[in-house]
Each structure stands twice: as structure tokens, then as C-alpha cells.
């Protein structure tokens, strides 16, 4: 079996890349390299085929309206099925903002367009009139991550989860999925959806490792990952959290 290798599939990198989301892929790749693991990042975009057995971890970021419509149409072809299959088979997945919205049941935009999702997550999104913008802090109970996640949200979509998935965490500061129920993000098997930009993973290294470990376990016998020196990551996390908690303008929605 040899040295573990993480095979990342970066979906629509040139379309779904708003707000520095590619930092998540950089973080995943570097955290493998620093452990001596191999990494392969494969960009997969409009019209490309997707083999669900070829990758261990899928990433899709956020995009602007026009890009999101193009991607929605493309996912409705075979790619959506392949992605669902991969997640059912245990692949890890991280989707941010617009990517997250397209993996739910459907996305009803504010202007009235109904974009069908691929129903990987039991979630529905409707566009709202005001944008939710600002720093976010989320308390997550995800196994091995337990603690606060920090990020920045910027979305007008309001997402509501069904019973088929659970939230990534409860909002401490910020809006989260919809600004009403105190929930942020969504988890189904090893797949995560969230509104947190930031980039999310560099400042939340335990979540990065949660994804890496689950992705590698598909093909490698691993109990846990070797520890890395995360002092800079933790300092950045602490500073961002302090700053977020200090802000008075954000109303917290209690979970």
C-alpha cells in the first residue's frame, strides 16, 4: 500500500472560486505534504467526466450567479450521480457557500429562478433580499473537531436542513444557514456543506484533518494522522475568534 496519497478532486476551480475558497485545497494539500504523504489535485470542470472511484476528497467553492447557473446545469448531467455515489461510498467532501447550495435539493433564487440541486444534502435554499455578511463563529460537535470554527460569511441564500442531515454546528456569532434557526452548515456521512469562507480550513486545522483522515481511510489503514505544529494556525484562529466575539454589530442567534 505504501505511502498514503490523497487524491483531491477540485470541482469547477475556475468558476467556483469566489472569496479565496481555493485556500482550502492549498491547506489540504500542504497538510499532507508536511506529513510526507503524496497529493494529487485534479481539476474537473464543465463537460469533464467524473469517475467516483478516482478521488478520495471532493471540493467545490462558491461562485457568482452566472457561474452558479452554468455549474448547476453541468451537475444535473452525470456528475451529480457520480458525486452522490462517491459520498455514499465514503469519500470526503467539502462544499462552500454556492457549492453547498447546489448540493441540496434545490435553490430558489431571489429573482425567481429555480435551480435544481443534486440532493446530496437534504437541504433547501431560497434567496433572500438582504445579504448575510460578516465574521462567523460556530460551535461544532463534529467528532474529532469538537470546538469553535471561525470564518467569514457572505450570502443571500437561506438554507434549511431536512431530517436527512445534521448541522455542522450552532452559530455563536453571525447568521449561519438562514439567520433563524441558529444552525450552520450541514454534515452527511463524510460530506460537509458550509457558508464559511476564510479560507475555512487553514484557520480550522482540525476540520482539515477530519476530512483528510476520512478521505485516506478509504484506501489506507489509518487510525489517526501524525500531529503537526499548528501553533500559527491556532494563533490565527484565536485572533479571529476574539475579533469576532468583540464585534458588537452582529446579533448572535442562539442555537
Amino acid at each position: 500500500m505504501g505511502t498514503p496519497e490523497l487524491r483531491i478532486c477540485h470541482l469547477y476551480p475556475e468558476l467556483m472560486n469566489i472569496y479565496g475558497d481555493r485556500g482550502n485545497v492549498i491547506a489540504l494539500a500542504q497538510r499532507c505534504r508536511w506529513r510526507g504523504y503524496g497529493v494529487r489535485v485534479t481539476p474537473v470542470s464543465l463537460g469533464d467526466g467524473l469517475d467516483p472511484t478516482e478521488h478520495d476528497l471532493y471540493f467545490i467553492g462558491g461562485g457568482q450567479d452566472r457561474e452558479q447557473i452554468l455549474v448547476c446545469e453541468d451537475l444535473a448531467r452525470e456528475k451529480g450521480d457520480a458525486l452522490r455515489q462517491a459520498v455514499e461510498d465514503g469519500a470526503a467532501l467539502l462544499s462552500i457557500c454556492g457549492g453547498f447550495q447546489l448540493l441540496g435539493d434545490h435553490f430558489l433564487t431571489y429573482t425567481g429562478e429555480d435551480l435544481p440541486g443534486i440532493s446530496l444534502f437534504d437541504a433547501k435554499t431560497a434567496g433572500g433580499d438582504a445579504r448575510f455578511i460578516g465574521n462567523v463563529a460556530v460551535e461544532s460537535g463534529l467528532e474529532g473537531v469538537e470546538g469553535v470554527l471561525v470564518g467569514f460569511e457572505n450570502h443571500s441564500g437561506r438554507t434549511y436542513l431536512g431530517s436527512g442531515c445534521r448541522p455542522l454546528g450552532g452559530v455563536i456569532r453571525g447568521y449561519g444557514n438562514n439567520g433563524e434557526d441558529g444552525q450552520e452548515g450541514c454534515v452527511y456521512r463524510n460530506a460537509i456543506g458550509t457558508y464559511l469562507h476564510g479560507s475555512l480550513l487553514p484557520k480550522n486545522p482540525r476540520l482539515a484533518d477530519w476530512l483528510i483522515l476520512r478521505a485516506l481511510r478509504r484506501r489506507h489503514d489509518l487510525d489517526e494522522l501524525p500531529r503537526l505544529d499548528d501553533s500559527l494556525e491556532e494563533a490565527a484562529h484565536r485572533a479571529a475568534l476574539e475579533l469576532t466575539l468583540r464585534e458588537k454589530r452582529r446579533r448572535g442567534v442562539s442555537p
Binding site: 485556500g23 491547506a27 484557520k203 500559527l232 494556525e233 485572533a239
Partner: peptide, 21 residues
Amino acid sequence: RARDMALRMKYAGLHPSAIRV
């Protein structure tokens, strides 16, 4: 956001010993 900047350079491949916050 000094620490965000430092973190970005660490992930870009600059050794942490060459980064000061």
C-alpha cells in the same frame, strides 16, 4: 489580520522560522 497573513505565507511554502508576527 497579521496572523492570517503569516498563515498564508506558511501555506505558500515559507518556512515558519522565517515568519514573524
